[in-house]
Protein backbone atom coordinates (compact mmCIF):
# COMPACT_ATOMS: atom_id res chain seq x y z
CA UNK A 1 0.00 0.00 0.00
CA UNK A 2 3.01 2.23 -0.24
CA UNK A 3 2.37 5.39 -2.19
CA UNK A 4 3.95 8.72 -2.75
CA UNK A 5 2.95 11.10 0.00
CA UNK A 6 3.53 14.10 -2.25
CA UNK A 7 0.81 12.82 -4.57
CA UNK A 8 -1.87 12.17 -1.93
CA UNK A 9 -5.10 13.88 -3.02
CA UNK A 10 -6.01 16.82 -0.80
CA UNK A 11 -8.81 19.17 -1.74
CA UNK A 12 -8.87 17.95 -5.32
CA UNK A 13 -5.16 18.48 -5.84
CA UNK A 14 -2.10 16.34 -5.28
CA UNK A 15 -0.55 17.41 -1.97
CA UNK A 16 2.53 18.80 -3.71
CA UNK A 17 0.36 21.05 -5.89
CA UNK A 18 -1.57 22.27 -2.85
CA UNK A 19 1.68 22.98 -1.05
CA UNK A 20 3.06 24.91 -4.02
CA UNK A 21 -0.13 26.93 -4.16
CA UNK A 22 0.00 27.73 -0.46
CA UNK A 23 3.69 28.58 -0.49
CA UNK A 24 3.39 30.96 -3.39
CA UNK A 25 1.27 33.17 -1.13
CA UNK A 26 4.34 33.71 1.02
CA UNK A 27 7.31 33.23 -1.27
CA UNK A 28 8.02 34.47 -4.76
CA UNK A 29 9.98 31.47 -5.89
CA UNK A 30 9.45 27.79 -5.15
CA UNK A 31 12.12 25.15 -5.59
CA UNK A 32 11.11 21.52 -5.40
CA UNK A 33 14.01 19.29 -4.42
CA UNK A 34 12.77 16.31 -6.38
CA UNK A 35 15.73 13.98 -6.09
CA UNK A 36 16.13 12.79 -9.65
CA UNK A 37 14.90 13.54 -13.17
CA UNK A 38 12.19 10.91 -13.08
CA UNK A 39 10.66 12.26 -9.87
CA UNK A 40 10.97 15.81 -11.19
CA UNK A 41 8.94 14.83 -14.26
CA UNK A 42 6.26 13.18 -12.10
CA UNK A 43 6.02 16.16 -9.79
CA UNK A 44 6.00 18.62 -12.67
CA UNK A 45 2.94 16.81 -14.00
CA UNK A 46 1.40 16.74 -10.53
CA UNK A 47 1.68 20.49 -9.98
CA UNK A 48 0.37 21.32 -13.45
CA UNK A 49 -3.21 21.82 -12.17
CA UNK A 50 -1.95 24.43 -9.74
CA UNK A 51 -0.20 26.31 -12.53
CA UNK A 52 -3.05 26.14 -15.00
CA UNK A 53 -4.73 29.37 -15.93
CA UNK A 54 -1.63 31.33 -15.07
CA UNK A 55 -2.65 31.75 -11.44
CA UNK A 56 0.93 30.82 -10.61
CA UNK A 57 3.53 31.70 -13.20
CA UNK A 58 5.41 28.60 -14.24
CA UNK A 59 8.71 30.39 -13.94
CA UNK A 60 8.16 30.75 -10.21
CA UNK A 61 8.53 27.00 -9.74
CA UNK A 62 11.82 25.23 -10.36
CA UNK A 63 13.15 21.76 -9.68
CA UNK A 64 16.46 20.88 -8.07
CA UNK A 65 18.09 17.47 -8.42
CA UNK A 66 20.19 15.77 -5.77
CA UNK A 67 23.93 16.04 -6.17
CA UNK A 68 24.28 13.49 -3.40
CA UNK A 69 21.87 10.85 -4.63
CA UNK A 70 20.47 8.46 -2.06
CA UNK A 71 21.52 10.62 0.89
CA UNK A 72 18.01 11.43 2.09
CA UNK A 73 16.37 14.74 2.95
CA UNK A 74 19.63 16.51 3.78
CA UNK A 75 20.67 15.98 0.14
CA UNK A 76 17.33 17.48 -0.92
CA UNK A 77 17.91 20.50 1.31
CA UNK A 78 21.38 20.85 -0.18
CA UNK A 79 19.99 20.72 -3.72
CA UNK A 80 17.32 23.32 -2.97
CA UNK A 81 19.62 25.77 -1.18
CA UNK A 82 22.29 25.36 -3.88
CA UNK A 83 19.74 26.41 -6.45
CA UNK A 84 19.07 29.61 -4.50
CA UNK A 85 22.69 30.51 -3.72
CA UNK A 86 21.81 33.59 -1.64
CA UNK A 87 19.21 34.79 0.83
CA UNK A 88 16.90 32.74 3.01
CA UNK A 89 14.47 29.96 2.19
CA UNK A 90 11.41 28.65 3.91
CA UNK A 91 11.91 24.89 3.83
CA UNK A 92 8.99 22.47 3.96
CA UNK A 93 8.72 18.70 3.78
CA UNK A 94 6.66 17.39 0.88
CA UNK A 95 4.19 15.72 3.26
CA UNK A 96 3.34 18.92 5.16
CA UNK A 97 0.17 20.58 3.90
CA UNK A 98 0.08 23.67 6.12
CA UNK A 99 2.02 26.89 6.03
CA UNK A 100 1.41 29.12 9.06
CA UNK A 101 1.46 32.77 8.06
CA UNK A 102 1.85 33.95 11.64
CA UNK A 103 4.65 31.53 12.50
CA UNK A 104 6.44 32.34 9.26
CA UNK A 105 6.10 36.01 10.09
CA UNK A 106 7.61 35.53 13.54
CA UNK A 107 10.39 33.39 12.08
CA UNK A 108 11.20 36.10 9.56
CA UNK A 109 11.27 38.62 12.35
CA UNK A 110 13.61 36.40 14.39
CA UNK A 111 15.93 36.04 11.39
CA UNK A 112 15.93 39.79 10.77
CA UNK A 113 16.58 40.52 14.46
CA UNK A 114 19.46 38.06 14.70
CA UNK A 115 21.04 39.34 11.49
CA UNK A 116 24.30 37.64 10.61
CA UNK A 117 24.20 35.65 13.85
CA UNK A 118 21.49 33.34 12.52
CA UNK A 119 21.66 30.71 9.80
CA UNK A 120 18.64 28.59 10.76
CA UNK A 121 15.33 29.63 12.32
CA UNK A 122 13.14 26.74 13.37
CA UNK A 123 10.60 25.52 15.86
CA UNK A 124 12.06 23.23 18.53
CA UNK A 125 13.04 19.84 17.04
CA UNK A 126 11.42 20.70 13.72
CA UNK A 127 13.70 20.78 10.68
CA UNK A 128 10.83 21.74 8.35
CA UNK A 129 8.63 24.80 8.21
CA UNK A 130 11.94 26.42 9.05
CA UNK A 131 14.14 29.10 7.53
CA UNK A 132 17.60 28.28 6.26
CA UNK A 133 20.25 30.54 4.81
CA UNK A 134 21.10 29.47 1.27
CA UNK A 135 24.79 29.79 2.09
CA UNK A 136 24.44 26.73 4.33
CA UNK A 137 24.57 24.63 1.16
CA UNK A 138 28.37 24.61 1.31
CA UNK A 139 28.46 23.31 4.84
CA UNK A 140 25.76 20.75 4.11
CA UNK A 141 27.83 19.49 1.18
CA UNK A 142 30.76 19.01 3.55
CA UNK A 143 28.55 17.10 5.96
CA UNK A 144 27.28 14.87 3.17
CA UNK A 145 30.84 14.28 1.97
CA UNK A 146 31.66 13.09 5.50
CA UNK A 147 28.70 10.73 5.41
CA UNK A 148 26.69 12.78 7.91
CA UNK A 149 23.10 12.79 6.68
CA UNK A 150 21.37 14.07 9.79
CA UNK A 151 19.07 16.92 8.96
CA UNK A 152 18.33 17.58 12.61
CA UNK A 153 22.02 18.20 13.30
CA UNK A 154 21.51 21.59 11.64
CA UNK A 155 19.18 22.55 14.49
CA UNK A 156 21.98 22.10 17.03
CA UNK A 157 24.17 24.74 15.42
CA UNK A 158 25.08 27.73 17.59
CA UNK A 159 23.58 30.00 14.94
CA UNK A 160 20.23 28.17 14.96
CA UNK A 161 17.42 30.20 16.50
CA UNK A 162 14.37 28.45 17.91
CA UNK A 163 10.91 30.02 17.69
CA UNK A 164 8.21 28.34 19.77
CA UNK A 165 4.81 27.92 18.09
CA UNK A 166 2.23 29.79 20.16
CA UNK A 167 -1.17 28.98 18.72
CA UNK A 168 -2.98 25.95 17.35
CA UNK A 169 -2.71 27.42 13.88
CA UNK A 170 1.06 27.64 14.28
CA UNK A 171 1.31 24.12 15.67
CA UNK A 172 -0.74 22.85 12.72
CA UNK A 173 2.18 23.85 10.51
CA UNK A 174 4.00 20.75 11.70
CA UNK A 175 1.28 18.29 10.79
CA UNK A 176 2.62 15.80 8.32
CA UNK A 177 0.63 13.20 6.40
CA UNK A 178 3.00 10.46 7.31
CA UNK A 179 0.48 7.70 7.97
CA UNK A 180 -2.96 6.78 6.60
CA UNK A 181 -4.33 7.74 10.04
CA UNK A 182 -2.73 11.18 9.89
CA UNK A 183 -4.05 11.61 6.37
CA UNK A 184 -7.59 10.62 7.31
CA UNK A 185 -7.52 12.82 10.39
CA UNK A 186 -6.29 15.75 8.33
CA UNK A 187 -8.93 15.18 5.67
CA UNK A 188 -11.61 14.93 8.34
CA UNK A 189 -10.47 18.23 9.78
CA UNK A 190 -10.63 19.74 6.34
CA UNK A 191 -14.13 18.24 6.00
CA UNK A 192 -13.04 16.48 2.88
CA UNK A 193 -13.66 12.84 2.17
CA UNK A 194 -10.56 10.65 2.20
CA UNK A 195 -9.73 9.49 -1.27
CA UNK A 196 -8.00 6.21 -0.59
CA UNK A 197 -7.53 3.74 -3.36
Amino acid sequence: MGRDKALLPVGGLPLIALLVKRMTRHCGRIIIAAGDERRARELRAAIAPALEGGAIAERRVAFALDRYAGCGPLAGLHAGLSELQTGWALVMGSDMPNVSASLLGRMRLAAASAGAAAAVVHAPLQPFHALYRASLALEIAERLERGDRRLRALLDRPDAVAVEPETDEEREAFVNLNTPEAYEAYMARQQLAPAFE
Binding site: I32, P73, G80, V91, L131
Partner: peptide, 18 residues
Protein backbone atom coordinates in the same frame (compact mmCIF):
# COMPACT_ATOMS: atom_id res chain seq x y z
CA UNK B 1 13.12 40.15 2.18
CA UNK B 2 13.75 37.13 4.33
CA UNK B 3 12.67 33.84 2.80
CA UNK B 4 11.45 35.30 -0.44
CA UNK B 5 12.02 31.78 -1.74
CA UNK B 6 10.86 28.39 -0.56
CA UNK B 7 12.25 24.91 -0.86
CA UNK B 8 10.08 21.81 -0.75
CA UNK B 9 12.12 18.76 0.17
CA UNK B 10 10.69 15.55 -1.16
CA UNK B 11 10.41 13.06 1.69
CA UNK B 12 10.44 9.40 0.90
CA UNK B 13 11.00 7.90 4.32
CA UNK B 14 9.13 7.80 7.58
CA UNK B 15 5.92 6.35 8.92
CA UNK B 16 3.57 4.10 7.03
CA UNK B 17 3.84 5.73 3.64
CA UNK B 18 7.58 5.52 4.00
Amino acid sequence: LIAAAAVIVLLGGGGYWG
